[in-house]
Design a protein around this nucleic acid. Structure first.
Length: 563
RNA sequence: GCGCUUGUAGCUCAGCUGGAUAGAGCAACGGACUACGAAUCCGUAGGUCGGACGUUCGAAUCGUCUCAGGCGCACCA
């Protein structure tokens, strides 16, 4: 919140210096505001003087002097501004201004932490997008946690977010699925010599087969499918199996508190003629050619390292063709910003899909859509790695994980690492309700504050509502001020998460905030003989609980009042 | 072999897009509850930021090379 107030002040100082012809650089470089590690260097610092020095043919410190002259006290925001080191401008925000931010936090209520950076522009985020060939596993869990939190973060940063799930319900894998269910219906098991190599071996296939033979009905939000029960009817089996597994995945996601606005089915892209239309357009644009009985896209014209088959010798399309059709549809739906969250094992699709979209020549930017690729997850249990094999059906499902370690801990653990780092999910650690578990550390801070309020109420103390600024001047110990500064940083942190697509920054923010509180609490008495100080501290803690809860809710994690 | 990605304390990881003396948690060691929750706090110790060269006022951060791990490299998805 401070950062957004300081940047315009610096900018106007630069413009004034420019108007007075004391500075000549044009255009001005973007202003970056840093947080010095050393408190002696102020609350914020700016390196603009060093950046300008060369062009201005002046010493950096001399440039800084000019800027500070026009910056003045920043409408009373700064208690002090000084030039340090090679030419940093160090800014010290006044205590009164810091204390005043608490009033602003109270005013914003549940919305504190939200910003307007996105200006309500449309953005679409596609995530999970698992094949409906099995329940969601731990890898999908990471995608769900990152994608969902990215949506929450973008929403908090003022974007108009659409959450989307794409079902690959056509193609070879689905045929494999149908065949596997059919064989189970006929009593053929994976250890039978007739079992095909690519068949799905998981136990859930047996469940699907049983449900199919019992002519069960699958009910879900947008579907209503009843099995005919005939083991020879492969089309009906496919239809039923996909519906059954989609429902399973929906339940998995519900248990994780992840919801979507739009579900798009690959099969619909075919039935609506979008896939054919894309191929025709690519041929018409001269980017396709026939060879070896197949139709190829000359994707090498668009940065790919080799050309790609679009239509196979058997007449069917490769998977990326409907993917291009799908993204064309996203573009036509008016999403100038689209983010795809996927496992990094799919990173080769990025160039291919973008190449296809470029070849359509309909004005789509080269870097569209954007991608967030998360690295693989390994699971540790009892000090050993749990091996995952989807085909063999041995893997940790998302549902098992949530049942075992709880939703809050599962989400937090998935979000602790930046997406492009590999993640080791230690089930034993996540289950521990001890100090080793960061989730409890943060939640404990919230619960602890709530219990202080109970205690205060018993003794007749209440946090004041909308206190006068003077009532807060007693919040002046280093711990008081450090707390306030951290509370004020939430909106900036939300913006950073949204800009960089890195939800993990919020988990670090929360750990830091919790740590700051615990430390404050051990050093300072909240309820004391001094009425004014007691009320001011209760007010500070009220804002702290509010901020913790707000930040946790952006991560989709609860803020318990007792634990 | 090529592409993407990662390499920071004994372990697991941050490091705010080039800033000032590189930070946390765990593990180790030593301390703190006869008043607000000890699921907590305070302190000590621990680092040639994988390695080499380069770019500049300044590099963990950018570039080139190199080593190591992961993931991809289908007319599978």
């Amino acid at each position: 919140m401070m950062r957004n107030r300081i940047a315009p002040l610096l900018e106007s100082a630069l413009l004034k210096a420019h108007a007075a012809q004391e500075l000549t650089t044009s255009p001005l470089p973007p202003i970056t505001i840093g947080h010095p590690a050393n408190p002696e260097h102020g609350d914020f610092s700016c390196n603009i003087a060093m950046q300008l020095a060369k062009g201005e043919r002046k010493a950096p410190r001399q440039v800084a002097e000019i800027i500070i002259k026009y910056l003045g006290s920043g409408d009373g925001l700064f208690a002090k501004s000084e030039i340090a080191g090679p030419g940093f401008i160090n800014l010290f925000v006044s205590q009164a201004a810091w204390q005043g931010t608490l009033l602003e936090i109270e005013k914003q209520g549940d919305r504190y932490g939200r910003t307007t950076s996105g200006a309500m522009k449309k953005v679409q985020v596609e995530f999970v997008s698992a094949n409906p060939t099995g329940p969601l596993h731990i890898g999908h869990g990471r995608g769900a946690a990152i994608g969902d939190t990215l949506c929450r973060v973008l929403d908090a940063a003022g974007w108009d977010v659409t959450r989307e799930f794409y079902y690959n319900d056509a193609g070879v894998q689905i045929s494999n699925l149908a065949l596997s269910v059919q064989l189970r219906c006929l009593g053929i098991e994976p250890d039978d010599p007739r079992w095909p190599e690519g068949g799905y071996q998981g136990e859930y296939i047996r469940d699907v087969a049983r449900a199919y033979l019992n002519r069960e009905t699958v009910e879900a939000t947008d579907q209503h499918t009843t099995a005919c029960g005939d083991p020879e009817n492969i089309d009906d089996i496919r239809h039923f199996a996909v519906a059954w597994l989609r429902r399973e995945q929906d339940l998995d996601l519900e248990a994780f508190d992840v919801r979507f606005d739009v579900y798009t089915l690959e099969s619909a892209l075919y039935s609506e003629g979008r896939v054919d239309a894309v191929v025709q357009k690519l041929i018409a644009n001269g980017h396709a050619y026939e060879q070896d009985n197949a139709l190829w896209l000359r994707s090498t014209d668009f940065g790919d390292d080799k050309d790609r088959v679009m239509r196979k010798a058997d007449g069917s399309y490769t998977y990326f063709v409907p993917d291009v059709a799908y993204h064309q549809a996203k573009w036509e739906r008016g999403f100038t910003r689209v983010i795809n969250e996927q496992g990094s094992d799919h990173h080769s699709t990025v160039t291919r899909v973008r190449a296809g979209l470029q070849a359509l020549d309909i004005g789509i930017p080269q870097e569209w859509p954007e991608y967030v690729l998360h690295q693989m997850v390994t699971v540790m249990r009892g000090g050993e790695e749990v091996k995952i094999s989807k085909r063999a059906g041995s893997y940790v499902t998302l549902r098992d994980l949530i049942d075992e370690v709880g939703r809050d801990a599962t989400r937090f653990f998935f979000l602790m690492r930046k997406p492009d780092a590999q993640l080791v999910f230690d089930i034993d650690l996540a289950k521990q309700q001890t100090n080793e578990n960061p989730v409890y550390y943060v939640q404990y801070a919230h619960a602890r504050i709530c219990s202080i309020f109970d205690n205060a109420a018993e003794k007749g103390f209440m946090a004041p509502e909308q206190p006068a600024p003077d009532d807060l001047t007693c919040l002046s110990t280093p711990e008081d001020l450090q707390m306030i500064k951290l509370l004020a940083a939430l909106p900036d942190t939300v913006d950073d998460c949204a800009v960089h697509f890195e939800p993990h920054r919020l988990t670090y923010y929360l750990s830091e905030l919790a740590s700051c509180f615990h430390s404050f609490y051990n050093k300072n008495r909240v309820i004391s003989e001094e009425l004014k100080l007691t009320e001011a501290r209760l007010y500070l803690l009220k804002r702290t609980a509010q901020t913790l809860k707000s930040a946790l809710s952006i991560l989709g994690i609860s803020a318990p009042e007792r634990m």
